[in-house]
Amino acid sequence: MSEVFGIPLPALLGQLMLGLVNGCFYAMLSLGLAIIFGMLNIINFAHGALYMMGAVFTWIALAQFGIGYWWSLLLVPLVIALFGVMVERTMLRRLYKLDNLYGLLLTFGIALVTEGLFRHRYGVSGLPYSIPEAFSGTFNLGFMFLPKYRAWVIAASLLTCFTTWFVVERTQLGAYLRAATENPQLVQTFGINVPAMITITYAVGVGLAGLAGVLAAPATQISPLMGTNLIIVVFAVVVIGGMGSILGSIVTGLGLGLIEGLTKVFYSQASNSVVFLIMALVLLVRPAGLFGRER
């Protein structure tokens, strides 16, 4: 059996793979945060709560209504997006003229309410969700065993990230979106319905969080607390990467997931805090973030 620095290679690769899976979630969540921030100028603190809702809804769909994984993969993000439309139309909309700190405080309140309600209803212990049949078992890659579900999560989220990048950077709709991010008034004078675009942006952003939640359901413990702990890490990811570029947030998310996985192998005590330490380092060296620009 081959070893790297005294660590058996399969164990190392296994942890790296786990790190990559986590990195995929970081990437999807920070991507959503970045898109929402670009358009609404608000940091969506509720993002973690919506990710949690995605996972819990997936569990509810199966346990109460017998709706399986594949349908959940389609329906749950839509439900979360609808919830997002509601939040944007009834609450966030009133805050656009104010200091953007109020947006953070409001979404923090939404996060507390959703987390509290789910915690009241479902407790804090994990809800079980088994891996869909098509993805049970592992691939034998020769040098390691790769659980099929992990491979699927990585593939699905990379595809999602790529699609989002493509839509924003390479399509007409994306061009409107980027233009409206730069100068909403000007875009509106061209007859484009900016308020509707803002709503759609928020819905898509939180829909991504919901989708990440569905993907996470069979891979992690579903619990009402899973969202907020994750979102704080994602905030650090966003600070490290900067919110300037979509590709930047994807790369940063994946990279930090991998680094976290490596830390788990070599110095597991620090695996919770390594992302925050890297954030502090980046602030010292490059305050605007790796891909960011000062604004």
Binding site: L105, L106, L112
Partner: peptide, 10 residues
């Protein structure tokens, strides 16, 4: 209590 605090924030 968390829910009430969140509602107060909102």
């Amino acid at each position: 209590v968390t829910v009430i605090m969140g509602a107060m924030f909102i």
